[in-house]
Design a protein around this nucleic acid. Structure first.
Length: 305
DNA sequence: AACCTTCCCTGATGGC
DNA sequence: TGCCATCAGGGAAGGT
């Protein structure tokens, strides 16, 4: 599922492929992913240049001359760019190529865009959990969409004091907290489990049961597992692909997610699976003890090893 | 306000 | 072979 590392991988890929390019034509199909009228969106983006590519949490921001074009990949969204044809045909300026690309639309493909330089960008989303927005730059509409998002893990604003402040007074379980985008933006089910493993915390622990050192460990673990995800080009379990259409490799580096019934790489204990917030939650019962008593025993074992 | 549950959506999978 | 139930989950909406 596209979480921060997957979205960031797509962002970087798009930066290399379409930044500075001008949209020559676009084709759109009615689809619930559109949060604005798709035909209106098409009219606004054609002729616009891609000025920059940004990301906030799991949202991808394609900055055009006059618009913020925002795409959330949801569960199965794929935003890919094909380089210009080997034939090297580049459209003449002003010639709208959308009739050519309209053929690529189908019930899982809400839009296709071509650039004056010949690249073709396609958005496909089988489960339709993705979202597409278009906001005029002049308005401050981004505040509405991003206003409730939490800390950005690789921003200078990601500071321990803020992290602790957001945890203050919370009574929910730490796994649920991590899934809340208002806490740390961009963490989803996979990296939540991975971060909790890295920090040695049982996912069912309540926020208020955590001691300061444990919160600090989590604060450090989050960027660590996200960074590893990006290093391997994201995690592909089924649908995720980068902007080049290629899957990521981080699924091979996961410590607990999807590894239930298998042995922990660190201690050999069998990884368990439970459900928290209606999400599959994977953990090592030995490395991530629920009680302090077990935790102490674990510390002794670790220091003895 | 915080927290939890339900729902959306469809392909893959397993049981019979 | 085919049919049906179940599962996966990000985030909005609705309820407590």
């Amino acid at each position: 599922m596209p979480e921060l590392p997957e979205v960031e991988t797509v962002r970087r890929g798009l930066e290399a492929r379409i930044r500075g390019r001008t949209i020559d034509g676009a084709a759109v199909a009615a689809n619930r992913v559109f949060q604005v009228d798709p035909q209106w969106l098409r009219r606004q983006i054609v002729g616009q240049k891609v000025v920059a590519l940004d990301r906030r949490g799991k949202y991808l921001v394609i900055e055009l001359d006059d618009w913020y074009w925002i795409v959330h990949l949801g569960m199965t969204g794929q935003l890919t760019v094909k380089p210009k044809d080997a034939s090297g045909t580049v459209s003449e300026r002003g010639k709208n190529r959308s009739p050519d690309i309209a053929a690529a639309l189908d019930r899982h493909t809400p839009f296709v865009v071509c650039f004056t330089t010949g690249e073709v960008m396609t958005f496909r989303d089988v489960r339709k959990f993705g979202r597409v927005f278009l906001f005029a730059k002049k308005q401050e509409a981004l505040t509405g969409l991003f206003g409730s998002l939490g800390l950005e893990p690789f921003d200078s604003s990601y500071r321990l004091e803020e992290f602790l402040r957001k945890l203050r007074g919370r009574k929910t379980r730490i796994k649920s907290m991590l899934l809340n985008q208002g806490f740390v933006a961009g963490v989803g089910n996979i990296y939540a489990d991975e971060a909790l493993f890295e920090a040695g915390l049982h996912p069912a622990r309540t926020v208020r049961s955590l001691r300061r050192a444990e919160k600090e460990a989590l604060f450090r673990a989050i960027p660590e597992v996200l960074e590893r995800g990006m290093l391997y080009g994201g995690t592909t379990l089924r649908d995720y692909v980068g902007s080049d259409g290629e899957p990521g490799q981080n699924q091979n580096g996961l410590r607990v997610y999807g590894r239930d019934e298998r042995r922990c790489y660190r201690c050999g204990t069998v990884i368990q699976k439970m459900v928290i917030s209606q999400r599959g939650t994977h953990y090592c019962p030995s490395c991530q003890p629920r009680s302090r008593k077990k935790e102490k025993l674990n510390d002794i074992r670790t220091s003895a090893a």
